[in-house]
Design a protein around this nucleic acid. Structure first.
Length: 197
DNA sequence: GGGGAGATTATCT
DNA sequence: GATAATCTCCCCG
């Protein structure tokens, strides 16, 4: 029950992996938590960094599945992705903090647990993620990924903060979790631990 | 508790 | 030179 996922877990469309990652626990150097929010980015997706093909920044997105893709946004925030099939990735958007909480609070400079990992930039800062963590294997130290919780009620909605393809409901999360970057609309709830379609 | 401004820089046009 | 998968602070009500 607390096993690492098989590498083939990530050798699928990001659209399948993104909802399946909800409930997994990810840590870096012992700090991290339960994944409660993700977004999918695909190769033919205008909002994806891979849309115009490989480049220096997005090289990791074309590497093997289960690789990290870390990039800097707005000149100051790092974001962590899990690479799936080539050119696709899942943005890890929010965690429910479970381990290394004191350490994460120190990195964030805030005592509020709800503000530790409730956003892609926040969780990267809390876990100490930066450019040096780009292109690493997510299933090997210093990262760890394991099944945490099962049966979480799943919600979907439009992705956040993008200008292109902003209507697609490719954001996934644990409905009602207090650790989301933003709430989902109530009717966006899918099914307890269910699959997407 | 919601809306808006500003921060700050790698990457690509 | 414009853009960007964000966050925080400040103001308003």
């Amino acid at each position: 029950m607390t096993e690492m996922p098989n590498p083939s877990f990530f050798a699928r469309s990001a659209l399948e992996v993104a909802p399946d990652l909800i409930g997994f626990e990810i840590t870096l150097g012992g700090a991290g938590g339960i994944i409660v929010e993700t977004e999918a980015y695909l190769p033919d997706d205008p909002a994806s960094h891979s849309f115009r093909g490989p480049s220096q920044r997005n090289a990791s997105m074309f590497g093997p599945p289960a690789t990290s893709y870390v990039y800097l946004i707005y000149g100051m925030h790092w974001c962590l992705n899990a690479v799936c099939l080539p050119g696709s990735a899942v943005l890890i958007r929010a965690l429910e903090p479970t381990s290394g909480i004191d350490e994460m609070m120190a990195r964030r400079g805030r005592p509020d647990v709800r503000q530790l990992c409730s956003g892609p930039g926040k969780l990267a800062q809390a876990l100490g993620i930066s450019g040096e963590h780009d292109g690493l294997a997510l299933l090997s130290p210093p990262f760890s990924l394991r099944q945490g919780r099962t049966g979480l009620p799943l919600a979907t909605g439009p992705r956040i903060g993008i200008t292109r393809a902003s209507d697609l409901p490719w954001r996934f999360g644990a409905a009602g979790s207090p650790y989301l970057s933003r709430r989902f609309h109530p009717e966006a709830k899918i099914s307890p631990g269910g699959r997407i379609g």
